[in-house]
């Protein structure tokens, strides 16, 4: 990975570098548990820079959908890289559980399935 590019981007991202989930490991010397698991799973090296940009993208999306900006950062920070990647596909595309009561539909489907 291009280290200079990563550092440059981190600076560009401003406050974002302070987020633990995005921040490169304080001790970049050891190999992280995540890397160990990822290597065991697939042997794939992960592209950290791309992930940082994706996090910003998802955070912006959340804000567009009405989440307050500070909360959006906290939400994205608590997600894994894979989850962030899922969300980059677009929040509109993903299932958002919400239904309170859909009695009529349930009834219709139930009748159909009986």
């Amino acid at each position: 990975m291009n280290k200079k590019l990563a550092i440059g981007t981190s600076l560009l991202l401003g406050t974002f570098v302070l987020n633990p989930a995005v921040m490169p490991l304080a001790h970049a010397d050891i190999v992280s548990t995540q890397q160990i698991v990822a290597e065991k799973q697939s042997g794939l090296d992960r592209m950290q820079l791309a992930e940082q940009l994706q996090r910003v993208d998802v955070q912006e999306q959340l804000v567009r959908y009405g989440v307050n900006p500070v909360e959006a950062i906290a939400r994205v920070n608590a997600m894994t890289d894979a989850e962030v990647q899922q969300l980059t596909a677009g929040i509109e595309e993903l299932p958002a559980g919400s239904a309170a009561t859909v009695i009529l539909l349930v009834l219709v489907i139930w009748l159909l399935l009986r």
Binding site: E83, V84, L87, P95, G97
Partner: peptide, 13 residues
């Protein structure tokens, strides 16, 4: 998520 009137799986996790 206000404008989706719902929650995503990743957010529950």
């Amino acid at each position: 998520i206000p404008d989706r009137r719902g929650s995503l799986q990743a957010e529950l996790l």
